[in-house]
Nucleic acid binder design. Structure first.
Ligand SMILES: [Mn+2]
Ligand SMILES: [Mn+2]
Ligand SMILES: [Mn+2]
Ligand SMILES: [Mn+2]
Lengths: 225, 225
DNA sequence: TCCTATTTTTAGATTAGTCTAAATAATGTA
DNA sequence: TACATTATTTAGACTAATCTAAAAATAGGA
């Protein structure tokens, strides 16, 4: 079967397709994948044929793409490694949460089951990475916690930040400046209907602040009673 | 200049050429490189042209190859990473010394100065890897300790094992069974002139044992008075 | 020195992954 | 339903790294 190890590039495509699949039910489009892996649509088509031949994705010309069982398993393995490495970098090597993604993009492709088991053990079997994302188990099980976007929270309600929807260094450093981290409690003072921006009270911060719709669309929270 | 990062493959060639250069003064042959990187001579020739064009090696058709300053620096960076990762795997992740090389072959190609600095710090700036090999400094300085092969030691003399000349799992596990590790003291009881094998007293072992010429040719030691 | 065996290089193909430009299919609007 | 726009695929080419087979250069022995 798929004994031969997947290439660096194949792993990146699978990961991208997996993420796109989970964030909207319909089949994933060629263009969306191209955008995600930073390449041209024509290159994506070529790779889709290859992955389909290996039965890692279900692909029908012009109809978009979805994952197969084996494909999802392979994708989750890469995601597991990515998130464990990010956690390792923060917990053991004092990286900040905005520094880890780029390095993890490289480390996730290291092939060594023993290595990743030992990293997992060293970290005490963490369940979430520095951005609040769940770490899939060795068996490929992932438990998405139920959460909503901060932009969906009603005025006056309180919530706790559980994850970020964007791991770009710029966004994360901006959150640092606002005093927002994973676990921070926030309360919506007012939602400005005109542009969707939000006046927000942040735990441990004296003054309320305003955040754009853009920002509130990238923060996952759970409601706090 | 050589701003563009070296590829995985280029790094492996440089490392191989560096090692071959240091273990015998004359220029390195195409065939020796081919053997070392497990490829064909014709492929090596192609790569030599490429590396020469980047001024990482000095190459003249049919005359063999030697390193340039920049080439040596690049090779030592890879070797530094390899040995730091090996040390990390043993010290922090409980790998045995025969398990580390293969994984380090992958990890040595991760590009992140910060990562390697932090690994170095976490380990307390080690000077030698699990096989007794010196770890080059960030500036590319390497201090080879003076040592001789066990096979060169005279009968009756005592020595301390400081490094192995072969890091293959088979050899290392055989040493484990003999009770020989880095730092172990050994005394030559008798050298068998007929086949070069050696009767050896190993520190902490009750009975002396015999090792082949092959084995004694792969153990680096320093004399102990 | 000459000749042969060995080493190295060249020539020409191949594979993975990418690209641009052109062709084709799907979609949505009139 | 017809047409124009958009999305996707195909065709053909390119680069990095590899290979085999053939040509060329070197080295060593007679
Ligand atoms: Mn990440
Ligand atoms: Mn993450
Ligand atoms: Mn090694
Ligand atoms: Mn080593």
């Amino acid at each position: 079967m798929s004994k031969t190890q997947l290439s660096f590039v194949e792993e990146n495509y699978l990961k991208a397709i997996y993420h796109l699949t989970t964030e909207s039910k319909d089949p994933v489009s060629t263009n969306a994948i191209a955008e995600s892996v930073q390449t041209r649509a024509a290159s994506v088509t070529d790779m889709l044929k290859k992955l389909a031949a290996k039965k890692l994705i279900a692909y029908k010309k012009y109809y978009g793409v979805s994952m197969t069982g084996p494909g999802e398993k392979a994708a989750l393995e890469v995601i597991r490694k990515h998130r464990l490495w990010e956690t390792f970098l923060v917990e053991k090597l004092n990286f900040t949460w905005d520094q880890v993604h780029e390095v993890a993009e490289q480390l996730e492709h290291i092939h060594s089951p023993l290595l990743i088991q030992r990293i997992d053990a060293l970290l005490g079997y963490p369940t979430h990475d520095p951005h609040g994302d769940p770490i899939p188990s060795e068996q490929g099980e992932i438990t998405e916690q139920s959460h909503i976007l901060l932009s969906e929270l009603k005025s006056g309600s309180e919530g706790k930040v559980v994850a970020v929807n964007d791991s770009s260094p710029d966004f994360l450093r901006y959150l640092d400046r606002l005093g927002i981290a994973i676990g921070t409690r926030v309360t919506i003072i007012e939602k400005v209907s005109f542009d969707g921006s939000i006046e927000l009270k942040v735990e441990n911060e004296v003054k309320p602040l305003f955040i754009s719709k853009e920002v509130s669309d990238n923060l996952w929270i759970t409601k706090v009673t």
